[in-house]
Write a protein that binds this DNA or RNA. Structure first.
Lengths: 196, 196
DNA sequence: TGTACATCAGTGAACGCGCGTTCACTGATGTAC
DNA sequence: TGTACATCAGTGAACGCGCGTTCACTGATGTAC
């Protein structure tokens, strides 16, 4: 059953990182045990430490991976220019995204837990979020993306907080209205930047 | 040592709820064990179930209490009218609030974890957040507060997400710029509502 | 080509520990007579 | 006023369980001769 070679091991590691990313988003970091994470990847708990130094190591790695995937699959694939950001905002603050935590944004799923993590994880998060943000900033100000970094970051904060709030509310109708208001707010934030 | 009477027991219960609220915000819900929560209140673990049916029961109670306290101590005590909201936004998105999680906003500290909780806790949260929000809405539109509910809710989402993001970043300078941009965004959101 | 050995990804049981919860008990307070 | 008993807030040990982590072992694959 067990195949051999560096290639195979790297593939297994990748599988653990991806399934763990999904599990963390669904059940939280503290809510996901090593045995469960390994079972998700089709392995037993003992193999974990051949791939990662500790659970913290996996947490940092999985968060970095989630942000990278988001930059590549969501931000980079959106329509070019400002229209792309509008597309991103509408997709982010949609009922589908609200109801699909496992495939959704790691910021919305984990931000407050990340804030409680150690330096290593928070550094991995910071590096990852900057990559994500630069994709948005380069659409906001193509000639000078770094000037738009903070604005892009604040847009992410708005979106993540709004989605978290929509997920926490038991009143579906109110949550829906909140998401619509969030789109309005997000787009207004963009327009305020045209003269920057 | 142990005093007697319904009065005393209610006082003890109150102390548990308050210290637990602080501990949850600092270490997370999953990160706070019953023994630790009771030790915080100066008691031993065994007494817990004389006050609460389960940990979930305390979680729901503490979250409701936190939101009520925020409505009373922050929102209700701010300056009257729109100036009060501006005061709230600036205080919320300040470095002091970023660095004081224990005394800070329960939304910023716990929102994504609340989203993963059961119906009972999320219902308690929803009820509590509506009280908090109504205090803001009645400043936004004194003649018809319910029309401004969603807008007030979206302002809370913006503020909570921005503060979480500022807490998660290891780059203090960037976090500071984010908070300042968050204030700009929050105030712009208010102004967009004047013609409503 | 065949055989002996080295490599190593993954298994599964075990470690000490803290979790949420239960319960027999303590001892101070309040009540009855 | 004094004594006997009832009440009950809180103690602290114990329950089964899952946590993160360790490690002796398995068995398929690759290498040497």
């Amino acid at each position: 059953m067990v195949r051999y070679g560096k290639e195979h091991k790297a593939e297994t590691r990748r599988r653990i990182i991806e399934t763990a990313g999904r599990r963390f988003k669904q059940d939280g970091i503290d809510g996901s045990g090593v045995s469960t994470l390994m079972k998700d990847a089709g392995l037993t708990n003992g193999a974990f430490y051949a791939h990662f130094a500790s659970k913290d190591d996996l947490v940092a790695t999985a968060i970095a991976d989630q942000l990278k995937a988001q930059a590549e699959n969501v931000v980079a694939r959106a329509m070019p220019g400002r229209a792309g950001i509008e597309q991103i905002v509408r997709g982010y603050l949609s009922p589908q995204h609200r109801d699909d935590i496992g495939d959704g944004c790691p910021n919305a799923a984990l931000l407050d837990e990340i804030g409680r993590c150690g330096d290593m994880t928070r550094q991995a998060y910071t590096d990852g979020v900057l990559i994500l943000i630069d994709g948005i900033a380069s659409r906001l100000a193509p000639e000078d993306p770094s000037s738009a970094r903070v604005k892009a970051l604040s847009l992410l904060g708005l979106m993540a907080g709004t989605l978290q709030l929509a997920r926490a509310l038991t009143d579906r109708q109110l949550a829906h209205e909140l998401l619509e208001q969030g789109v309005v707010n997000g787009l207004a934030l963009l327009d305020a930047g045209l003269g920057m």
